[in-house]
Every structure is written in C-alpha cells, then in structure tokens.
Design a protein around this nucleic acid. Structure first.
Lengths: 335, 335
DNA sequence: ATTTAGCACTCTTGATGCGAGAGTGCTAAA
DNA sequence: TTTAGCACTCTCGCATCAAGAGTGCTAAAT
C-alpha cells in the first residue's frame, strides 16, 4: 500500500462521496492532479480491487469503495474537516437559552446535529437510574393532582404531573417531600426502589403507595420516548441511494426501533466511533454508516449521540461536528 | 344520479380504496353483487365519467374516482365505519394516566390517531394566549435558575426552567409569585403583555425584566414545536401511491412546514371535515386527502386534529376515529 | 326501452433486440 | 515502469412486438 495507491484511493472516495457514481480511471486522471495517466491509475485500481478496497458494480462501470476501503480511508487517510466559524458559533449558542431539562437537551442536540450534518441524528439520554437524587418537591395542582419536581446529581430537573393515590393537603405534601429529600439525598435512583420498600424506613414507609407511584414515573420515563430523540429522518430522502422506498422504510424503521438504541448504548469506548456498512451486522442498515460519540453529564453517566447516513458519508465533516457537539454538551452539562 | 349509479360508484370506490388499481367493469360485475352484467356496468361507468365522478388513466385501463367522485362518496354514499370494542377502549384509556400537560396531550393524541388510522397525523394545540392565567409559582433550582409553573384556565399546567435576570432568594420569589397571581388571576395570557408594561402596576412593575422574560417563554412556546405534534409520518411509505421519493418528500415537507398548521387552524367550523385532493389548492398534497376535527379545552379555546392520507383514504374509518378521539379529548380536557 | 353478448380497437406492460457509450484489461511500445 | 492503443464487456436507452386488459359500439335478446 504505497503512497500513490493511497492517493488514488482518496481521490476515488472523495469523488464517489461527491457524486454517488462509480468512478472510472479517466475521471480520476482528469479531475485530480495525480500526475500519472489513466492507464497507470487503471493498474492501481486493479491492485486496490485485489486488496479488497474497491469493488466493481459490473465489468464496465467505474469502481466504488468497499467497506474495507472506507475503513482504510477513515482510519488512515482522511483528516477531520475543520468547522467554519459560523458552525462553531451555532454549536456554542445552542445551549445558552433554557436549561436543566434533560429531554430538552437531547431534542436540541439531535436537531442541531442533523441540521449541521444534513443526516438523520439520534441522541440518547443517559439512564436516569444512575444519577442520584438531590431534591424532591411537590406542587399541588388541585383535584388530587400534583407536579413532582425531581433534581438529580447531574444538575438536571425532571418534572411530571400525576394523580395522588390519596388526599394530601399542601402542607402535608411539603413535609413529605422534605422528609423524603432529607432521607434519600445522594442515593441513586435505581437504589431508591429497594430503599422505599424497606420496612425500617419509618414514616417514609407509611406512604409507600405514593412513593412507588412517584418512582414508577421517574424510572418509567426511562423506557419512554423522553429518553431518545430522533431528528431530521427525512434528510435521507435527499440522497440518491435512498430512492427506493423500501430501503427508506427499513432504515428509518431501524432508527425508530429499539435496535438503534441498543446498538449505540452498547458502545463503551469514549470518543467518536465510526461503523461502516456491514460492520454493524444489521441487515436493515447494510449500506449505511454510523458515526457515534458519547457525552457525559456529571461524573461518568453517559449519553450517546449518533448520525446515520449513506455509506458514502462525509466522514470528515460529520466526525468533526459530532466531536464538537459532544464536547460542548459535556461542557455545558458539567457546569 | 339514480340508485344503480350510486351502487356502481360505491363499489368502484370501495374496490379502488382496497386495491389502488384502476377498476374495470368485469371486476365490478364479478366481485360485487350488482345484479347486472359487465356491459351494463360499462354503460353506467361511461355515464359516471361524463358526470365527472370517474376518470380514466388511459383508454384501456379501468377507471378511478375523481375528486368529485370521492366528494360524492363521502357526502352522500358512505357511512362512518363503527369502531370495534378494542378501539373504543384504546381511546378511552389513552388519557387515563398522566394529566394536565398540554404538550403531553397533543403528543399522545397524535400517536393514538396515527396508530389507529395507519396514516400520519398532526395535532395542533390551542393557542396559549387565549387561555387565562390561574396561578403562577416558582421553584428555585439554585444557580439563578428557576422552574416556573403556570396554571391556565383550561386546567392545564405549563412549566419551564429559565435563568433569572437577577438574584432572588426563595422567599422573595414566593412572594413575587403570590403578588403576581393575586393581581392577574383570570387575565388572558395575551392580555398580560400590556398589563405588565403598565406603569401603574406598582410593585409588579418593579420587576418588569423578570416578568417579560417569563412572558416571553410562555408565549414564545407558542411559536415553538410544543404547539404541534406530528406522529407516524412514515406510515405513508406503506401506500403504493407513495413509491416515488420526491412525492414523499413533498408531502412530508408539507406536514413539517407551517403550511399544514395554517391550513388546519384556518378551519372555523366544528366537527369532522374532509378535504379531498385538489380541494386544498396546495400543490404538494394534490393527491392526498385530509380529515380534520376540532377539540375544545375549557370554554371555547380550540385545538385541531388532522389525518393525512392518499386520496383513496379509508374515509369511513378515519372519520369515525377522528370523531371519537376529538370527543374523548374534549371530554377529558373539560373535567 | 333496457340489457346483454360479441367484437374490433386502444393502450399499457413486459420481453427482446440493438446500438451507443463508458470503462476495463491486456499488449506492446516508450 | 509508464503509457498509448485497442478489443472486449456490460449497462442504458430506445424501438419493436405480442399479450392482456378494458373499453365503446353494434346488434340481438328480453
């Protein structure tokens, strides 16, 4: 794999990403200053095909990159595309307004990323259970309904209205919330489950029904849609590889199913990751690529961020954007 | 327009709705018990075409209904399809859990409707400005941020966190909220704008900056996405008339643009409305139909509910569902 | 007067064939 | 080792053709 092969591979992939058409030796010789004739390039291309970096859709078309070709391109050749000033500012400004509501953050982030990249984007919130309780309060709304406001260790606030199982007056509610907060401050949400059921908990224990209800909401929210946000799914309609409706359906189906969530949540390693085509082992997105990143809220509770596009994705650009956004998100959520 | 013509028209439309294929006289004679031969049906079909109820894609295909044909079908022939038990229960149960958050209601409704109908559905919340303030309170979250909780006349609760323009301690905030509530209870949100700026308002007036900020959020939310919820857009991919990606893009673009919102909000009349094909005068949805309904919250503040599908929509079913859901919604929001 | 059978006519659809164009691989010369 | 030249292959678009579906019209039947 000498330098010239790399050059040819790079030029070919760049061209294919730009045009979505198989690239021939003549095109490469004409459009890119490789300093050699098309015949030479032809030979190099044949070698690259033998090495498994390129494929030929049919005998007499140009060539297109294989998964392995893209992989080499991403790992060895390509440089992350620097963001322009406007984009950096956009990212910085995205989180300056409202604050502290996790679901707002993930919505905002998903939209931001999909607008910057022009690909669909999916953002997964960190699991609530892992964060610790900081404060709980109730706001009575009348008619046995109450707004429960929960502050967690990451500085986030979750709130939800729900029906009370029995009548409480405002004062009683306030004192209940106080007792609860005093007792359980710093305890992880997932731990609360057991603590609430603990018969030794005295007064807290007397209102088990209430707490269980509350708990159900908090953790129930987990399995809900609040946890994951999808933005810009229709962007994929803009790419010619998705002119087939069945393909669109499969891919968007993947994004809406839990498969996407599982796939992305399984990733342990930090930083930007790229999954190309069949590497995902998922039939539905055989000819898509994914770029994922993680972000942190508080200490080490992590969320995930993902961009899905055609295999000929603008890797450099997307990786830079995803990196910048996840950095910014981590920064903002830490303060 | 004698009875037999109606029968033929009905059979033809039913068949076309089921198959999406142009319908020929032979098919009608065979599948539907019309009691006459295909030749007779052929004559009737020719008449129906002259009357403008049918069209021929080309000389030797069967016929398909025109907009006028569908219109006649909807207005004169078709009966609303009764819902099955399971569907009625589904609708009743949909709103039993969480309560009082308007944006939750519209999300829930959109999803419910699109799942029942298998078409995309759009739900528009009633304009916040028209409802009156009932109660305002603050929950301090530390670091100059606060959760503002606003109760409105419809019994709805809006809440949002935001940054305080200056430092307030908890007590001061509580008293501010009390003053504000006392002063403005029953005033319409849109009216608040002027009242807050009124220099005669004494103490309230001293914290103009705070109130303006708060107001900006409440009414700003109006132009935001919280106001409208789209569910099941991908359902249209299941219908053969949308095998063309460009068409899909146009139609889904329409749903995401403000056009849809404007169109539906312009409707004054109550009850279920049907817009067929070109009747909408919008190029992007030339071969789609819309079924819309209104719902009320409180006295006469209304929201809208809309289903979009191909022209050969299952009108009877969709109209029943939309009717039932909007009734239920109105009922729940009234209590 | 209506309904129906029969039939010629029209138009789509799918298969087949053909030429143009693009791109390759190979050979031989530079 | 590179390059020019050329034969070869395969797709794509276009035209042609037969089959099939459905119609409209005419004439017979009810």
């Amino acid at each position: 794999m000498d330098l010239r092969k790399q050059r040819v591979l790079e030029a070919l992939i760049d061209d294919y990403i730009a045009t979505a058409e198989p690239v021939g030796s003549r095109t490469l010789a004409r459009k890119y200053a490789l300093g050699v004739s098309s015949a030479t390039i032809r030979n190099e291309m044949a070698d690259l095909e033998d090495l498994g970096f390129l494929e030929q859709p049919h005998t007499s078309a140009g060539r297109i990159p294989s998964d392995k070709g893209y992989r080499y391109y991403v790992d060895q050749i390509m440089k992350p595309a620097p963001l322009v000033q406007a984009e950096r500012e956009r990212i910085r400004h995205a989180y300056q307004v409202r604050v502290r509501e996790l679901h707002w953050f993930i919505h905002q982030t998903a939209r931001l990323v999909s607008e910057l990249t022009q690909y669909p984007s999916l953002v997964v919130a960190p699991p609530v259970e892992q964060s610790a309780l900081t404060d709980l309060s109730f706001i009575p709304l009348g008619d046995s309904t109450v707004l429960m406001v929960l502050k967690t260790s990451g500085g986030m606030v979750e709130n939800q209205t729900f029906l009370l199982p029995e009548e409480f007056d405002a004062q009683k509610l306030a004192s209940l919330a106080q007792d609860f907060t005093r007792e359980f401050r710093g305890v992880a949400i997932q731990e609360l489950k057991h603590r609430i059921l603990d018969p030794l908990q005295g007064d807290i224990n007397r209102y088990q029904e209430l707490w269980q209800l509350a708990l159900k909401w908090v953790t129930g929210q987990d399995s809900e849609e609040d946890k994951v946000s999808l933005a810009g799914p229709l962007n994929i309609l803009n790419y010619p590889e998705f002119r087939d409706v069945d393909k669109v359906r499969r891919v968007l189906g993947f994004l809406e199913k839990e498969t996407a969530l599982q796939l992305v949540s399984r990733t342990e390693s930090e930083g930007v990751q790229v999954v190309i085509g069949a590497e995902s082992l998922l039939d539905d997105i055989q000819d898509c690529s994914l770029v994922t990143a993680t972000y942190r809220v508080g200490a080490d509770v992590v969320g995930h961020l993902m961009v899905l596009g055609p295999r000929r994705m603008q890797y450099g650009r997307v990786m830079s954007i995803v990196q910048a956004v996840s950095d910014e998100l981590t920064r903002v959520l830490h303060g």
